[in-house]
């Protein structure tokens, strides 16, 4: 059994995104058109087909996280960083995340793939330092 997902994960982990040349050789390896590989790769939320910004800060906005102050955390990040959600100014992309399955540890913040649970407003500054 061959799983393209395994290859995609390998590439994503190695480069932090899915570079074109890697997808080209993946297409070759699996005997599939590049457009099909791109179609699959671009679907998933954990893969990036573009060269990503240096840092990602994601705040989960599922109901449990919101009930535990996620929106206040999100706005605090916006203010502290001076960036708006999903914009690509600078090195940091701030985004809303969908449920991360850690609702018992809400609110959840993910920075460059690392999970921070039960985040409080007073932790924000320290968290931002992870990106500096």
């Amino acid at each position: 059994m061959k799983f393209i997902l395994e290859d995609l994960w390998q590439i994503e982990k190695r480069f932090g995104y899915l570079p074109r040349r890697e997808l080209e050789s993946l297409a070759e390896k699996h005997g599939k058109p590049l457009a099909e590989i791109f179609s699959v790769a671009s679907f998933y939320s954990l893969f990036s087909v573009d060269n990503p910004p240096k840092h990602f800060i994601g705040v989960c906005t599922c109901p449990s996280c919101i009930a535990n102050g996620a929106l206040e955390i999100l706005h605090a990040f916006e203010e502290e960083l001076g960036v708006s959600i999903n914009s690509d100014e600078g090195d940091i992309r701030l985004l809303k995340l969908q449920c991360q399955g850690r609702c018992d540890k809400a609110p959840v913040v993910v920075i460059d793939g690392v999970y921070y649970e039960k985040v409080r407003l007073e932790n924000i500054e320290k968290l931002i330092e992870k990106c500096r």
Partner: peptide, 27 residues
Amino acid sequence: IHLIISGGGYICGEETAILNSLEGKRP
């Protein structure tokens, strides 16, 4: 028994979407 990690997507929990995903297609 194989362990395959999904690429991220709520729809991947739908039983036929999983199959497409495992086959290397859009889920």
